[in-house]
Design a protein around this nucleic acid. Structure first.
Lengths: 359, 359
DNA sequence: CTGAAAGCGCTTACAG
DNA sequence: CTGAAAGCGCTTACAG
């Protein structure tokens, strides 16, 4: 390993001078600068980030603003684990990550939690921008203190952000459309099943639906596309009656697309015959959905790679803070197509990390 | 931040003694040990990994034995880039990675390159075990020097290894079978198209074919499965004549499965009508294959995630060396289903890394 | 069983 | 414009 000391000796200068050209701090004569640069190049020098971090007492801090999760509402667990994994890794380059969890159904909680966050004066912020109006307030604050901030999982249009880490929702819906066409025999119909009320991550769902429809409309085969809106996925009885009535009225339907993460709720209210005859496609690898995939009722799930989203968000921000890498505006994660057969292979990384956690 | 120095002062001992109890190095009286431990606890001390890494001069070395690549035969480029990315990251925890490239068609090159590698006395080795007999010799050597070694991309049965990073080939073929069933209308036939001669990664291909057939046999629909073996994918003229003759003799065929990475060669010899009417499914996201996916001739590609394979191999070995994490025996990477629509999102990581390289 | 000191490779004042 | 020296927090011999 080539050290600054080695470069300095070869150039007949002090280590301080090498450091000055390495970081463009100026105050070095053109001549020595050139000389040092050429030696740097030739010896293929690269700074030792560990020593650098130690000397600088690198105390970058990333604060994360993310919804809390629990047993029944566990979607945010996976992004959180991904964040945690990256946090552990970046510790060794002097980056400290702290978490602030809010209630995703409460604007007050969102804002209040952010206020606690901002008091810690982080150098960068990773946030899930749940509520548009409040997010605008937050962004104003962040700009004031000149913090880098990246959006995680939810991309808000019309709001500047340093970067976004998540999925291209439109395209993921488009792909769901393609898979649906494959799963439903020609001449039969499909439907899109969603709630009529809006929830937090509505934005993504709207885009998925748009993508899905667009695929249907551009494709030449003629399958009719119906739409069913229900009040809630949580009220079993009502959901059951809406779905059954709808399917009776439209006996030609052979495919159901659920653009939210709640397809398992739909499966729960279907009869065995319906499970057999319908091609079901949904989103997100929640435990419940994965169970439906494995028992064969759901044919495909599109995964957002939530674990990876969290992981990448912390990584790119760290690399930006420590190594001055440019933040990519949009970091779109893979659109995973999950089937019964490949789902178990899909989160080796995440499983390994969870295992480590329990040790 | 609480430092060792602070703990030492409070306990009226030297920093060295605190270090001894932190790492259970022994040689500390029961009494002082207890005292220090309680202070550690109370002050909620945790070691600064940056300083630790620097002081330890962590000088682990990983040597990688991997096939070389070039323009036409570029499969190994992606694993290499993945290895490179991880190498950069683990530098900061004191791990150095060096590369040794061999000619994948020459046993002599394989063995001779390994001999050069072993002279550098690496603490761990990542290798692509191309030739069975030679691999056995290599493993013997590695055991002698007690080096950790992990297999990359190719898993060799009947040979001990510390770990394997790659795909579950059988299952990936099985999934190809499932997708083929979706793409081919009921009542029509399919065929598996492969070379009759064996090549290096034959093992994987055999397992894919087995998986594919198994899916066909367990599924209730009746599509007949044919097989066509050709001499080589490189001889266009001959390939064209074999394929055309075969398709004429079996006009009922609507799907072609190519279990190697060469489906693009098959596409090149098909007529426009054939391209239209056949459902084509292949392996690996080589540039040529991706082009076929994008222009719509190939419906699905199964990806091995070659970039990630390289990346993970270096990461797990590093974590093993530095953090004493146990090596997972089999690290199966996701079985990616690629379509025209999602292929561009699939290697954001790899593309970002390539961009960084060029800066 | 314990301490004092040097060193890991880089950065940061300070002096000139 | 440049150098010498101290320091980041931990680890490693070495001496006792």
């Amino acid at each position: 390993m080539v050290r600054i000391k080695d470069i300095a000796k070869e150039a007949n200068v002090s280590e301080g001078t090498v450091d000055r050209v390495l970081h463009n701090r100026g105050g070095v004569s053109k001549k020595t600068e050139e000389k040092i640069k050429s030696i740097l190049e030739r010896r293929n020098f690269s700074i030792n980030p560990v020593a650098s971090a130690l000397a600088m007492k690198n105390n970058h801090s990333i604060a994360v603003l993310i919804p809390e999760y629990n047993e029944t509402d566990s979607f945010w667990k996976l992004p959180y684990l991904g964040l945690l994994k990256a946090s552990e890794e970046v510790k060794s380059i002097g980056v400290n990550v702290t978490y602030f969890k809010f209630n995703q159904y409460s604007r007050e909680s969102y804002l209040e939690t952010f206020n606690r966050l901002i008091e810690t004066k982080p150098t960068a912020v990773v946030l899930v921008p749940m509520f548009l109006q409040e997010t605008n307030l937050i962004i104003d604050e962040l700009k004031k203190i000149e913090a880098t901030y990246v959006f995680l999982n939810v991309d808000v249009e019309g709001v500047d952000s340093s970067a976004y880490v998540g999925q291209d929702s439109y395209m993921s819906g488009y792909i769901a459309g393609k898979l649906m066409k494959l799963g439903v025999p020609n001449g039969f119909d499909c439907c899109i099943l969603q709630t009529s009320t809006s929830t937090g991550d509505n934005q993504a769902i709207l885009k998925r639906v748009k993508g899905f429809k667009d695929y249907f409309n551009t494709s030449q085969d003629e399958n009719v596309l119906h739409e069913l809106k229900v009040d809630s996925f949580s009220d079993d009885v009502q959901l059951a009656s809406s779905v059954h009535q709808f399917l009776e009225n439209n006996p030609n339907i052979r495919g159901v697309f659920v653009p939210s993460s709640r397809i398992s709720a739909v499966v729960d209210v279907l009869s065995d015959v319906q499970k057999q005859s319908l091609c079901l496609i949904g989103f997100d690898n929640t435990p419940q959905n994965v169970a439906c995939l494995k028992n064969g009722t759901v044919l495909f799930l599109i995964s957002q790679k939530p674990f990876d989203q969290g992981y990448e968000a912390v990584r790119i921000v760290s690399d930006h803070l420590v190594k001055n890498k440019v933040l990519k505006e949009k970091l779109y994660l893979p659109i995973d197509i999950l089937t019964k057969e490949n789902v178990d292979y899909n989160d080796a990384n995440q499983l390994m990390f969870e295992k480590d956690l329990n040790q």
